[in-house]
Design a protein around this nucleic acid. Sequence first.
RNA 1: GGCCCCAUCGUCUAUCGGCUAGGACACGAGCUUUUCAUGCUUGGUAGAGGAGUUCGACUCUCCUUGGGGCUGCCA
Length: 441
Amino acid sequence: METKEEIRARFAPSPTGKVHIGNIRAAIYNWLFARHTGGKFLLRVEDTDLERSTPEAIEALFECMKWLGLDWDEEVFYQTKNIQRHLECVEKLLSSGRAYKIEKTSRDGKTGIVTMFRMPKEGTIEFDDIVKGHMAKKAEDIQDFAIVRSDGSPIFHIANVVDDIDQRVTHIIRGDDHVENTFKHIEIFKALGAPVPRYAHLSMIVNRQGKPYSKRDGAAFVGEYRDAGYLPDALFNYLLLLGWNPGGDREVISRDEAAKLFDLEKVHVTAAMFDPKKLQWMNGEYIKRMPAAAFKEEVKKAAAGYGEANHTEEWWDSLSSQLQTRTKFLKDLHESVRPFFDGEYPFEQAAVEKRLAKPGVKELLLDLAARFESAPDWNAPALEAIVKELSQGGGMGPWVHPVRVATSGRGEGIGLFEMLELLGRDATLRRMRDAAGKYAL
RNA sequence: GGCCCCAUCGUCUAUCGGCUAGGACACGAGCUUUUCAUGCUUGGUAGAGGAGUUCGACUCUCCUUGGGGCUGCCA
């Protein structure tokens, strides 16, 4: 009886300081596959490019993984620590005749001895890709290729395969750009007497022109989305949908649910175009679905530094519930929360011109301030009743707009009367009168 | 050039031979509304082209066209 093989998937980026969204999608699919199957998700750092693989770059990679909730199993595997093994395996290939040394001249004109891997000269190499299906290629169509440089350092092909053997990787889920390499790598696995893992090649994320999405097309790195205020779960969900869906019409899918439903076989073969608009929508969905308490914490965080007002929890609850449906990005909170606190707040030029710098507005504000002052209760319904009475059944716009700009400096925000309630009587009256003097005609 | 892969609304996609081709984003209209949103209702837009298989093809086969990938002492 054969014991059931443990599934081991891996994400093996070379750290460059920034993690590309296409790359992280591969990480997401690996993670999902491992979590779905109950297998292991391994992280291997292919840090053989000493120039770029700085400690900072590696740290940035970890950070990005953590931000997206991509926790890995076992210790991080560093490719540079396995160079001895790579070279040992090359020796084996050399002695079995599957590798040979030859003098070559590189593109930049330097001549030296490199070690080449010998491909078979006839027959076909084939494998069943979990997403692309059956793949076959005539051996004669693939050239022998270098595995050790003239300076003695192992090249990607051998390092990658040996590491996969040593990490006992059973499933290789990676970018489409590696399909051709797969035919080569399969031969190395065989030549080394190792079992050939299963492969799944993911299509690329492309731009409007159908070319691989790059930094020229917009934000291409995970860090940029974090800095722009995207929620990690929203990015995760959006990237997940770019090439896979659970069937039916479900779109907003939690990480756990995705892990439950994920199926590599249903991953699309076709390239997917990146749509920032839909990502933005997805982010809004996640903000709307945030637990109220969590959102309130974000509001408080955004307000930190605007002066210490002793607001009650009810006050914060009210503010944050008003804000939650109108917030597209958490980082916008810092600005939208500003008028609710004492101290300077900016007046938007356009809003001032449109709503305050008009004849009659000064009297209107002063008159309304007086009426507000004698309001029996300071709450939204009471204030609304006052304006409603003034408007005599017509629209409340002529009163509402100037008051909003006068008290917040901006043309938009949460419901006006809710805002005034939160602002309180003193601040509201003071601001209305100040603005009447400063800006209104 | 050679080899490999791909092809449904503008975009992401559902469909696994029966389709009046469904959903989401984006866009338009409307309702709700003090603003901005949310919410609700609603509109338009798709199977690259050509053969074949079949009672029946978006779904299967072939060709054409178009797109992408690879073709390094990069990964």
